[in-house]
Design a binder for these strands. Structure first.
Length: 271
DNA sequence: CGGTAGACCTGACCGC
DNA sequence: TGCGGTCAGGTCTACC
């Protein structure tokens, strides 16, 4: 489900609620996620205080007052829910429940591609050592991207999803960004000149920021922790569309599969 | 090493 | 109403 704007929306909301608060208790289901808390880590969480909630790539990092972090990844269908105590009702696929003094924070994930685990400071560094530049916050180093692009011979669509080059783009925003800069998803990374790479990055940042401004995209299951829906899905230009209007003319959108993911693009407009 | 299928899951939707 | 097929925001692994 969630790409970078959805994760960012989640941490901004949650940070305001939990910063400085103590975890009174923790419960979990016995269902397997992509990564689970081991027993020792599970037992160590009760009583810890939350210092801050951050994001790295599409991961949510909850810093605890014990030189360690809860690491949460929402996978395809995960979300964090926030409930005042009197409002909590258990739902299907609630996998982790963090109890605070006056509220609960609940990790829910139907498909269970998500992760909920713990790392100490040292482990954190090595866990995140192979990630690329964050399109939302980093000042992008174009030369580095350009070098990575030259060394590869994959389509630029695939490259956008490769988290060791860029961090945070997922399938929706990769499609939207490519349309925004009018580059064909079929182009190979080593065929782009510097100007095209610059354009591509600019469009990625534009699309991500616009989505964030609109609270992310809500398709099927994504909601922010308080249940609000994002609205960027109403602004998709190509994703899951069959035609696009440009300069009052209508162009058809083609759907193809690239490395197992759907790509939507206009062969006429994107070169 | 680099690149690509397939695996991991549940649920929604569509056609019969 | 049910059954089978297809598809979905993301990673990771096993294999050429």
């Amino acid at each position: 489900m969630p790409e970078l704007p959805e994760v960012e929306t989640t941490i901004r909301y949650l940070g305001k609620k939990v910063n400085g608060k103590k975890i009174v208790s923790i419960k979990k289901s016995n269902k397997r996620l992509r990564k689970n808390l081991n027993l020792d880590d599970f037992n160590s969480i009760k009583g810890k205080r939350i210092i801050e909630v951050k994001r790295f790539a599409k991961y949510i990092l909850v810093k605890l007052n014990s030189q360690s972090f809860l690491i949460i990844h929402l996978g395809m269908s995960g979300r964090l829910k926030f409930y005042l105590k009197e409002n909590y009702q258990k739902e299907k696929h609630d996998h982790v429940v963090l109890e605070f003094d006056k509220f609960y924070v609940v990790f829910n994930d139907p498909r269970r591609f998500g992760m909920f685990f713990k790392l100490n400071n040292k482990e954190l560094k090595s866990f995140f050592n192979n990630y690329g530049q964050d399109l939302l916050v980093d000042k992008i180093n174009i030369s580095e991207i350009s070098n990575k692009f030259k060394k590869k011979s994959v389509s630029i669509k695939q490259a956008l999803l490769d988290q060791s080059i860029f961090v945070g783009l997922g399938n929706i925003y990769a499609n939207e960004a490519l349309f925004h800069c009018r580059l064909s998803p079929l182009r190979l990374t080593n065929s782009l000149n510097r100007e095209e790479i610059f354009k591509l990055i600019k469009s990625c940042r534009y699309v991500l920021k616009l989505s964030l401004k609109n609270g992310g995209s809500s398709i099927n299951d994504y909601k922010s922790p308080d249940g609000t829906l994002g609205s960027f899905q109403n602004m998709f230009e190509v994703y899951q569309k069959s035609e696009v209007i440009f300069k009052k003319q209508s162009f058809s959108i083609k759907k193809i599969i690239q490395s197992g993911r759907s790509t939507f693009f206009s062969p006429t407009l994107q070169k």
